[in-house]
Write a protein that binds this DNA or RNA. Structure first.
Lengths: 254, 254
DNA sequence: GACAGGCGGTCGACATTGTCGACCGCAGTG
DNA sequence: CACTGCGGTCGACAATGTCGACCGCCTGTC
């Protein structure tokens, strides 16, 4: 039976729909958005609700995602081998560099943040674990595109969305940048996604040299850069952290 | 069609199974654990994999939870109204009390942590958003049991699991404690779950006075307590934070 | 190095199962 | 006070997911 299970695919589509829309959605909205009969959508929603994946506002009757998803997402992090091995290295990197550290893996057409170390001694920050960043405009993403053919495939041919005046929106430009990244072994992104923010990324590989994720530091451009280029000392820190994590992944495999 | 969709319930059971077991599970393990035919389990797993809810280790063929769950769990937090309104108050409470702050909601037979503010100026801490705490032995849980009949129902009649010598394991003891909690309007838990840890909790209500969650501070017993009782000043801080959040929830409803 | 045992994965027949579209009661609205 | 929209239900139908036997592969073993 090499076909996907219809009801499951539909349930997944419904949850993605609920995740996308900011506000809660009604039964009719869901069914029309996905082209399903109202009864069908209701059956799926009712089951998802029983399982805790979806909650219903008792007043309006509208649906939103449920708490069970949060719990399962946490379990995903617990099992995640890359994340487990990277925890301590990411902490060290944040302390050494004095900047925010992100750890990401390829997921669909973006980079999913699986770990986030706050900048040491700084004010209120929002945890971004579980959020996505674009592939073509971030240090985390570009280093994956450079080394992982799957990531390059997910990126497509563009043109890509533009976030600032520095964003590379054409495939040829990104590919040229990726060649450079492969040559020197690290990536950067200076105000390509957010104004005033620069980052430096490096690849994490498993023991067979397969790319499995990336690590980066991110901070205000005036602290991360010097004379228009990222500081070499920070590059060295990031690369050595990436190597350390890769070595860790290669070493133990229970 | 007032019956749950079979394949969906089974898929949910599989995901919960994968979340429970620490390590990755093989196809046969999954199918026997749930009493499913191997072909059936495989079909569900294949679909879940396509949707990103489950990942397969290409080497061993074993399955684990997928990244999409993390992303959807994050979306759940984004929509969560209680959490959104409580963010700033929780921060203030942590700063005023100088201790860790948790925000929880009832989920199944436990309290799901939906927000976690680290203790100010302290060493490395693990984020516990998405994890569960017991109902009968924590300040977060007991205040829910005291005010929310649903939570009391989920708790059951015991005896409950014992974590330390202070854990209340009998229903009558918990119910007596809950009466006290209702009388004075706040809950505490002194080394009932973890040795050396004490917490103070209070209820959060929506605008119709329905219990929707709870907030607590948690810290070393020697800082939170005095002469064997929790410090009144900390109790006042927690209660005022809970009132502020409740007021916020009642005020705006877009 | 042939064998056995376990694995993940496939196949096709069967009937269970999910799907569909019409229908219901209710709430808000002009 | 009809009317329109909502969430939810119902029952017939057949498409759908389920089952258990089977396949090829790898691994460990004697």
């Amino acid at each position: 039976m090499p076909g996907p299970i219809q009801s499951l695919s539909r349930a997944a589509a419904i949850m993605r729909l609920l995740a996308g829309g900011e506000r809660r959605l009604g039964l009719s909205e869901v069914s029309t958005a996905l082209g399903l009969a109202k009864g069908t959508a209701h059956g799926i929603l009712r089951t998802l609700q029983q399982e805790g994946f979806v909650e219903q506002d008792p007043e309006s009757g509208k649906y939103q995602l449920g708490a069970e998803l949060l719990r399962l997402g946490q379990s995903y992090l617990d099992v995640h081998e890359l994340r487990a091995r990277a925890l301590v290295w990411a902490d060290d990197l944040a302390r050494a560099a004095g900047e925010t550290v992100y750890l990401g893996v390829l997921h669909q057409q973006g980079v999913l943040i699986v770990h986030h170390v706050f900048r040491p001694d700084d004010t209120r920050q929002v945890l971004e674990v579980g959020s996505m960043q674009p592939l073509h405009s971030t240090a985390l993403g570009k280093v994956l595109v450079a080394y992982d053919p799957v990531a390059r495939g997910e990126l497509g041919d563009g043109p890509y969305e533009s976030y600032t005046v520095h964003t590379l929106t054409e495939a040829v430009d990104v590919d040229a940048e990726c060649a450079l990244i492969r040559e020197r072994g690290w990536s950067d992104s200076i105000e390509e996604t957010w104004e005033g923010v620069a980052s430096i990324g490096a690849l994490i590989q498993d023991r067979r040299r397969n790319p499995v994720g990336s690590v980066c530091i991110s901070g205000p451009v005036e602290r991360v850069c010097e004379d228009g280029f990222v500081k070499p000392s920070l590059v060295a820190s990031v690369r050595s952290a990436a190597r350390a994590i890769s070595r860790d992944l290669g070493a133990g495999r229970f």
